[in-house]
């Protein structure tokens, strides 16, 4: 028992310190006055606003288009499903730079689709949202597939045999039971969208107020103003931590509700 404890505790401590020390190092160098002063600079607050708008839009897009796809993958039984699933997972494992090149070659002015579009996408806020959705949506889909698959098919069958049509069964039975997983997936994809850097700077460019999201603002500030970079980094850490804690709480609550319903 003693031995097991040591084996568990020592590596856990090392791992935790490995996360905490670098994250803490950012705050060691910050004080409140500096933080507030930098927050009032356009490079910081414009990036914050842009990041909030684009990452939430990407999350909503991922949820709207990803939920039907996830349902199809979880319930459908068709040839080549394994390949389709791997394809959907692909953007998660690819380096963002690959996504950046791929998006440029698709939606760029001379791109596969871009050449037929009447307006041009790169260097626009739309490009930021496309880049974020491309890399973040698979996180939602993966999580949604799992939570749909965990819903007991007998409950759905029971609902159907009681004369409730399949549309209502989906909304009344399947959705509430898989909600925690869907919410978790949405938060993961939001977090990934918020942190998106590589694909954005390659595909969308870097202009304050239009395409310069928080990660790009950190990168840009590193060229001239290390303190601004630290403030933005600190902002992202606190912001992300708050959302993660909030989600944990909501998840726990909704799991409790789901249990009561059963």
């Amino acid at each position: 028992m003693r031995k097991l404890q040591a084996v568990v505790i020592v590596p856990s401590l090392i791992m935790l310190l490995f996360f905490l020390v670098p994250l803490g190092a950012i705050f060691v160098n910050l004080d409140l006055m500096l933080f507030l002063a930098k927050l009032a600079q356009p490079i910081v607050y414009e990036a914050l606003w842009l990041s909030i708008v684009t990452s939430l839009t990407s999350m909503i897009l991922a949820a709207f288009l990803g939920t039907p796809l996830a349902y199809l993958l979880a319930r459908g039984d068709f040839k080549g499903k394994v390949y389709l699933e791997s394809l959907v997972d692909l953007p998660m494992v690819l380096p963002p730079a690959v996504a950046g090149v791929a998006l440029l070659l698709t939606f760029g002015r001379n791109g596969l689709l871009g050449r037929y579009l009447p307006w041009s996408i790169p260097f626009s806020t739309a490009a930021v949202i496309i880049a974020q959705t491309f890399v973040a949506a698979p996180f939602f889909v993966r999580s949604a597939v799992n939570s749909f698959a965990m819903v007991d098919a007998n409950l759905e069958k029971a609902s159907l045999t009681l004369g409730v049509d399949s549309w209502r069964t989906f909304w009344r039975v399947t959705m509430p039971l898989s909600f925690p997983g869907l919410l978790g997936g949405a938060v993961m994809s939001w977090a990934r969208a918020l942190g998106e850097f590589g694909a954005t700077i390659m595909f969308a460019g870097n202009l304050q107020g239009v395409t310069r999201t928080l990660p790009l603002a950190i990168y840009t500030a590193m060229e001239s103003d290390l303190q601004a970079a630290m403030v933005i980094a600190g902002l992202m850490i606190m912001f992300s931590l708050l959302v993660l804690i909030f989600t944990r709480r909501v998840l726990r609550l909704s799991r409790g509700v789901a249990k009561c319903l059963r």
Binding site: F123, G205, N206, L207, Q208, V210, T211, Y219, T220
Partner: peptide, 8 residues
Amino acid sequence: ENLVSEET
């Protein structure tokens, strides 16, 4: 006004 991106 025509500036669309600032590269590194």
